[in-house]
Nucleic acid binder design. Structure first.
Length: 796
DNA sequence: TTAGGGTTAG
């Protein structure tokens, strides 16, 4: 800022000083010293400054240093005014330079302090013993080892390296820059160590997470002090040693604000949110000062626990002690309120905020999304002055979390068009949307993007990619991702185990389960859904029972209703209907409809029409809106030729307004997803498809295929049944796949319901007659058809 | 003058 642009300084004559007005000509040191400390605003300060300038008193180096120091220490004086005063001083000494540098450092502008030093060197001004500690501190704040080393070289040249303050700040600077070896070398060279050097090196090791060296230093310290103990509490917190942290805290003879804060954050980091809150309340009750740092921590605990009451209490406290203006606190409050579902309170803060930073905007968007207010989030998103990667990711993942997958991909495309680079987190949501939409092409493109741009496949991204490939039937690619993922969490293993089982690779799935345990990864509830699912897909009853028992006995996990459902399905499919029903009776929780449904499916499969009828009747009572159960029951009646009952069930369905979900098959060709319903004739290429269906029918008959008309539950004649069968959605999709894709690409189809018996048989024949692999995902699992057989080995 | 505590947005 240039001087000319600023308002002229007010003269003393116009002064409104409430103490004795100053005469124009008499300003001298003693007047300066009596008047200056009494200044409380610019109106009182400016006349003194003007006088000094007018009288030339500013040329007195000592007087100049006094007024500059006063200006930098006063909160009502902007640093730009201090700089203007500084620039007026012709013969600045070391003290004056240091004062200006310190002012910049205190206002978090370390770069400007370093720039001043360059100017100082240009002007041949002499640094003193105060100058270098300030500069080294500036480098530490910037975490710039490069600049720090340059300053260090100057220190060696000027001989200030023997100054104890210089030594301590250098140790701290290297430690902050995570260069512990240089920090340690300096530390070892200091002839007489002082508490600050010990504390600095200790803090460095704690920051670096080197627990061993930190403990060694702490043990060797000649005298322990609160600062060192606080560092150790932090170390214990980070390494999960909560008990040690507590012990050290309790043994401290003098606890300061940081000691309390350190233990609170220790609780926070170890997910002991209740303890964090309790300790904070104790801290307040004990009259310990509270600052914005610790409040941010406890607000996060309130958010985690969804305790808005304590959050509000803290809000009151913060207002009372007058620290509510901190931007970080504002953000923490917006986050806390929206996490607790108090979106209006969050909104109020957001609207009232004097300065909105990026985090406030992003917190607000994610708050709306958490509450399901997707459109509100979008409106805010669109009105943001600046969107960063977090804003985009929040909105994209918001769509994905509310099952709006097309919008997820659309927004991702918009982001791409604007040239904004997605990161790992963004891609997790996008890949997940691809999985739901079966958009394998885009999914593969993203995987390539990740590799090309060197993005890290972390636990989340790895799990999502494995899941996507598995759900698209690309087992090889999924395995490749698994092998390439360095960071494997329990979810990574789960995706693998579930995916392999789903794709019919049951032995491999169970093998991976053993492998997982060998690697020391503890299985969770979801793992066992996968393991029991694997057994279920191959009818491994004994193995399934063993795993089921191990859930409680070995892994101390309480089996949930889904685990019971898996077991009922496993027993039922294997024909052990009685045992399955007994297991349902013995469940410690109320069985859900899915569990009964599994038993009903088993009755249908094994032709136990009596039990089927009993269970079916119960189920349509339990869940009168469920289409599948009505259809199953009706099919059971149909297979007995019991058309009266079939009609009764249809009648009930009409009465309840239950509509059978139509079978729908999706196939992706050249980046476009095509959908087919049973008997569909709306596709633009329907004529070609019809021709292909005829060709298929002919070829299949020659291969020995006979339609299985048991699948058609209508009271119609056999020929009509055959025609209806050949219009099943999966057959339409296969015909379309034969037209639109060429080998060796497999025909990939996704069906919303389970594949029917006849389509399963037909698909096997087609895979042989047309020499095409068909990968079909149904509601439950995958079928890989290849040269006349299916990966499910006909057990499904 | 130097040393210790933190989190919030996907």
């Amino acid at each position: 800022m240039s001087l000319a642009k600023l308002k002229p300084l007010t003269l003393a004559a116009k002064s409104t000083l409430n103490h004795k007005p100053m005469s124009k000509t008499t300003i001298n040191l003693s007047i300066l010293e009596t008047h200056l400390p009494k200044c409380q605003n610019l109106k009182q300060f400016n006349p003194i400054l003007s006088q000094m300038i007018l009288t030339g008193f500013i040329r007195d180096t000592y007087a100049a240093s006094r007024i500059l120091k006063f200006s930098t220490d006063s909160s009502f004086i902007h640093i730009d005014l201090s700089l203007r005063i500084f620039n007026l001083i012709e013969d600045a000494n070391g003290f004056i330079w240091n004062t200006m540098m310190r002012a910049y450092i205190q206002r978090n502008c370390p770069q400007k302090a370093l720039n001043l030093y360059k100017l100082m060197v240009d002007k041949n001004a002499d640094p003193d013993n105060y100058t270098y500690p300030l500069l080294v501190q500036a480098c530490a704040i910037r975490v710039s080892e490069f600049e720090g080393r340059q300053i260090h070289n100057h220190i060696l040249k000027t001989g200030f390296d023997s100054d104890v303050y210089v030594q301590n700040t250098l140790i701290n600077m290297y430690a902050v820059c995570e260069n512990m070896s240089d920090a340690r070398n300096l530390f070892d060279e200091i002839p007489v160590l002082n508490p600050v050097s010990w504390n600095s090196i200790l803090a460095g090791y704690v920051r670096a997470g080197d627990a061993e060296k930190a403990k060694l230093i702490y043990d060797r310290m000649p005298e322990r002090n609160t600062i060192a103990s606080n560092s150790m509490i932090v170390l214990f917190g980070r390494t999960g040693c909560v008990t040690e942290a507590c012990r050290l805290f309790n043994e401290l003879p003098e606890k300061d604000m940081v000691s309390w804060s350190a233990l609170i954050s220790c609780y926070e980091q170890n997910e002991m949110y209740e303890e964090a809150l309790a300790l904070f309340l104790r801290m307040v009750a004990n009259g310990v000062m509270v600052d914005e740092v610790v409040v941010v921590t406890v607000l996060s605990a309130c958010a985690r626990l969804s305790i808005v009451r304590t959050g509000k209490l803290i809000h009151g406290l913060v207002v009372k002690i007058g620290i509510e203006a901190y931007v970080n606190l504002q953000n923490a409050f917006i986050h806390m309120y929206s996490s607790c579902g108090e979106i209006l309170a969050a909104q109020k803060l957001f609207n009232a905020a004097y300065h909105l930073d990026q985090i406030s905007w992003n917190s607000m968007i994610s708050g709306y999304l958490k509450c399901g207010l997707v459109q509100k989030a979008r409106t805010l998103f669109d009105s943001m002055p600046e969107k960063d990667i977090v804003s985009w990711s929040a909105m994209i993942s918001g769509y994905a979390q509310h099952d709006r997958f097309s919008e997820t991909l659309a927004l991702f495309q918009e982001m791409q068009l604007l040239g904004i680079r997605p990161d790992e987190t963004t891609l997790v949501s996008v890949v997940s949307a691809c999985t739901h939409l079966a958009a394998l092409d885009l999914g593969q493109w993203i995987h390539a993007y990740i590799r090309k741009n060197g993005l890290k496949i972390n636990v989340f991204l790895g799990t999502t990619l494995i899941n996507m490939y598995m759900k698209c039937g690309c087992v090889e690619n999924a395995l490749e991702v698994f092998q390439g993922t360095a960071e494997k969490g329990v979810s990574t293993w789960n995706a693998l185990i579930l995916g392999l089982a789903m794709n019919g690779l049951v032995e491999k799935s169970l093998e991976m389960f053993s492998e997982m345990k060998k690697c020391g990864v503890a299985p969770n509830e979801i793992t066992f859904i996968g393991v029991l699912g694997a057994c279920r897909h191959m009818g491994l009853v004994d193995e399934g029972r063993r795993h089921f028992d191990s859930i409680v006995q070995e892994h101390k996990i309480e089996p949930n209703v889904k685990h019971y459902g898996c077991m009922v399905d496993l027993l039922g499919r294997a024909g052990m209907l009685k045992e399955a029903e007994e297991l349902i009776e013995s469940m410690p929780m109320t069985p859900d409809v899915a569990t009964w449904g599994a038993l009903l499916g088993a009755c249908k499969k094994h032709g136990d029409h009596d039990m089927g009828e009993r269970i079916g009747r119960k189920l349509i009572e339990l869940d009168p809106d469920h289409d599948g159960f009505h259809v199953l029951l009706s099919n059971i009646y149909a297979s007995k030729g019991n058309w009266d009952d079939v009609h009764e069930i249809r009648e009930i369905m009409v009465q309840h307004g239950v509509v059978k979900m139509p079978g729908c098959s999706m196939i992706e060709a050249n980046g476009i997803v095509h959908e087919f319903l049973a008997g569909d004739n709306k596709h633009p290429q329907i004529e070609e498809i019809e021709k292909k269906l005829d060709e298929m029918a002919k070829k299949l008959r020659m291969e020995g295929y006979a339609p299985d008309t048991n699948e058609v539950s209508f009271d119609i004649d056999e020929e009509e049944k055959e025609t209806a069968l050949f219009r099943h959605s999966e057959k339409l999709a296969i015909a379309f796949g034969l037209i639109c894709t060429s080998p060796p690409t497999p025909i990939r189809i996704i069906k919303n319901l389970r594949i029917c018996n006849d389509c399963h048989t037909a698909a096997k024949f087609i895979s042989k007659a047309f020499s095409r692999d068909i990968v079909l995902r149904d509601r439950h699992r995958f079928h890989h058809f290849k040269q006349g057989s299916c990966s499910c080995k006909d057990y499904w």
